[in-house]
Design a protein around this nucleic acid. Structure first.
Lengths: 91, 91
DNA sequence: ACTACATTATCCAAAAATTGTCAAGTCTAT
DNA sequence: ATAGACTTGACAATTTTTGGATAATGTAGT
């Protein structure tokens, strides 16, 4: 999800994986996995990507956090109810 | 949250920590931590607790999963937006 | 205050999950 | 066949989580 968005941005801007990886100071293979959703981005990377692509941190961090949430509930029952309850309890 | 509910149930039924811990085959100190939210229950424990207190698994597992969600988003920005996005994406 | 019992706190090792690195692999175009 | 872009897998390094032992604290009764 956040990975798809980053790949989309990267391709739209004609940036190679290894170039973007260099900007983020990470291994190319790692970035490949992150874009494909095999690994998580670190939060600092997301913040750097917002700067690089001149987007609001809000958009990207929201996508990133949603991915984390989805990972923690995957394979569990009562996902929707738990999400709603969590939503209620943070307000 | 789930811990509060378990403690409430345990006290309402006049069960001691060490007795309930024994039923769950765990250390007393561990159960104390779980009730106070320092540690997570294992899912099997929640299922066992639903049987012990004759409640629906749904109620307890929902509380338990909500706790996990809350933990993964704690200290992060854009919690509400991410939760809403996650909610949308599981449907 | 002393005892007995219930609960909590602290510390540390074991286990598990996450992360990073590297090399080998696929795929496409020339 | 070679080169370039990307992907994958294996493994090591690191971090987080977990369990258990034991010490400390709290609490009620005498």
């Amino acid at each position: 999800m956040i990975g798809d968005r980053i790949r989309e941005l990267r391709e739209k801007n004609n940036v190679l994986l290894r170039h973007l990886a260099a900007q983020l100071d990470m291994d190319t293979g790692m970035l490949s996995k992150m874009e494909r959703g095999d690994r998580f981005f670190r939060k600092e990377d997301i913040e750097a990507l917002a700067r690089i692509f001149k987007l609001s941190e809000e958009e990207l961090l929201t996508l990133w956090l949603a991915d984390k949430i989805i990972k923690t509930i995957s394979d569990e029952k009562y996902q929707e109810q738990a999400l709603k309850l969590a939503l209620k309890s943070i307000k």
